[in-house]
């Protein structure tokens, strides 16, 4: 990061309207979510201003709703399995992009990162065709394969970013002192990339829990949580959906704040997440 003195000097005569614009943008980003949360407590349903009859009743109904909870269970299974797949292939992929040269490397890099920018529908449909040709029945397994594959991109960008701030001399020393590559990987590389890997795992987990476009095509009879909610939305809206959305929001919020702390703890930079932002175009 650059020093703060020039910024202060430049910003000293700032116009107040810029702050107002920024405030308005934040309001635009957050007001809808706040509204959603408020109406999850509204006794007389979604909509109607002002909200009244505040109640926890919708949460009570939600907690007694078996279909929702079995969908939550399915989503957790999918997220954990997808996280394992994405890390198992994403970490080596980042190492390969950082350290190996092989024919087709440029194509490989683009292909790995493509699901990050490509609309989910294309990835979902293509995989649907693959599973059909392979005669694989649609189930949670196909959703897991879809999420795992699409989210390798996240693991790769996160770990690749971690590798850029990583001192190779330690690995070199380890190898010189007689450790083999396997030992060096587990004792030097992984511990050094610890924060990137945990951060990636957290992101993959959260993104998989929320994912809907790819799941839409690969789901069998058992629903994940977003698809269960989606099915209900088509039938009409109830504050029960506001209640589950509120819980999802709070869960994502906690996960993202933990991820952010990990990243800022890892390398003190105000510019993190940028690799994610421009990954499709730059990494």
């Amino acid at each position: 990061m650059s020093g703060s003195a020039p910024i202060k000097k430049f910003g000293s005569n700032q116009s107040p309207w810029l702050g107002c614009v920024a405030g308005a943008v934040f309001a635009f980003l957050y007001l809808p979510i706040l509204t959603l949360i408020v109406y999850s407590f509204n006794g007389s349903g979604v909509g109607g201003f002002p909200p009244h009859n505040l109640t926890l009743g919708w949460y009570r109904i939600l907690f007694a709703d078996d279909a929702i909870w079995s969908a939550v269970g399915n989503s957790l299974i999918v997220a954990i399995a997808a996280m394992i797949i994405a890390l198992a292939f994403g970490i080596p992929a980042a190492l390969a992009l950082d350290r190996a040269d092989f024919p087709g490397k440029a194509l490989f890099r683009r292909l790995v990162l493509l699901p990050l920018i490509l609309p989910g529908i294309i990835t979902g449909l293509s995989l649907l065709m693959l599973f059909r040709e392979a005669d694989l029945r649609l189930s949670l397994l196909t959703v897991i394969l879809g999420h795992g594959t699409a989210l390798i991109s996240v693991a790769t960008t996160e770990v690749f970013a971690g590798l850029q701030n990583f001192d190779r001399a330690q690995e070199e020393a380890s190898l010189d002192l007689g450790a083999n590559h396997w030992q060096t990987f587990w004792r030097i590389t992984v511990p050094n990339l610890r924060l990137s890997i945990i951060g990636a795992a957290l992101l993959i987990f959260t993104l998989s829990l929320d994912e809907i476009a790819v799941s839409f095509f690969l789901i069998g009879r058992e629903n994940t949580l977003p698809l269960e909610i989606w099915g209900r939305l088509r039938r009409g809206i109830t504050p029960e959906i506001n209640a589950i959305s509120t819980i999802i929001f709070i869960f994502s919020l906690v996960a993202i704040l933990v991820w952010y702390r990990l990243r800022t703890g890892g390398h003190r930079s105000g510019n993190i997440g940028a690799e994610m932002g421009t990954a499709g175009v730059q990494v």
Partner: peptide, 22 residues
């Protein structure tokens, strides 16, 4: 900065649904 990136990872469905109720 955190406030700006949080919505990035908040469920697509939650945000689309919020607008529907609004």
């Amino acid at each position: 900065y955190q406030l700006a990136i949080i919505p990035l990872w908040v469920s697509y469905l939650v945000r689309a649904y919020a607008w529907k109720t609004i």
